[in-house]
Design a protein around this nucleic acid. Structure first.
Length: 219
DNA sequence: GACCAGGCACATC
DNA sequence: GATGTGCATGGT
């Protein structure tokens, strides 16, 4: 009963957000590689900063698997500097490229021919790719029906009482997967709409914003 | 100046 | 297994 109620509520939330904001046309990026690189660059970082970094990569004409693989990590980190955490992100992009070259001959389309659950595990084994980055890659670059969970998803849906505040990534993802049809196009929009809502109305980590209905913790 | 951003790995207890 | 910390630029 409870689940059925949540099921309807989730779909209503999706329809409402879609009706209000319209299609988000995600992921912003011209190629699959750009989407993957963007997914790493945006880790805990504002997208406007990622755009600056991607612009640098395009300007240097290095946004190809071959070029990115051949330039030095130091040069890469210099180009992506505006995205923050540039040393660690350069290493993470290089880690992904080594994985792609070693296992799939540097061919992204070939990589996405692997079964989604297997590929997800392979991506998670790459140092620097965690669950959100892996799922973003699968959904937005691979067009696989994978639900992406992010900080906004947890914040919004826990404050509205749908999930526990302490829920981990897999638990939140399961909440949505159990209640929504497996549809890559809808997952794409839903995540993008949640981010849109979060950026506009649920930006503060603390204290709770005025519109969040959730009860504060009792002291 | 404080806070936040489309996380993740690693150390420590 | 939970909790804390480093990574860093740029916008509000």
């Amino acid at each position: 009963m409870r689940k059925e109620k949540n099921n309807k509520a989730l779909k209503a939330i999706y329809r409402s957000l879609y009706g209000h904001y319209g299609p988000r046309h995600w992921w912003p990026g011209d190629t699959k590689l750009e989407i993957i690189v963007g997914a790493i660059l945006t880790q805990n970082t504002a997208w406007t900063n990622v755009e600056k970094a991607v612009k640098n990569l395009k300007k240097e004409k290095v946004l190809t698997v071959k070029k990115l693989s051949s330039i030095s990590e130091k040069k890469l980190s210099r180009l992506i500097r505006p995205a923050g955490y540039y040393n660690i992100k350069a290493r993470r992009i290089k880690n992904f490229l080594r994985f792609l070259n070693n296992f799939y001959g540097g061919n992204i389309r070939r990589m996405f021919r692997t079964r989604t659950d297997s590929l997800r595990n392979e991506l998670l084994a790459v140092n620097g790719i965690g669950p959100e980055t892996a799922d973003s890659i699968l959904l937005y670059a691979g067009e696989k029906p994978v639900f992406v969970v992010d900080a906004y998803t947890k914040r919004i849906f826990s404050r509205h009482g749908y999930i526990k505040e302490s829920a981990n990534y897999d638990e939140v993802q399961e909440f949505f997967l159990k209640r929504l049809p497996l549809n890559a196009g809808m997952f794409n929009e839903f995540h993008a709409l949640i981010v849109e809502l979060g950026k506009k109305l649920c930006r503060r980590k603390k204290p709770l914003c005025n519109i969040c209905p959730i009860r504060r913790k009792k002291k």
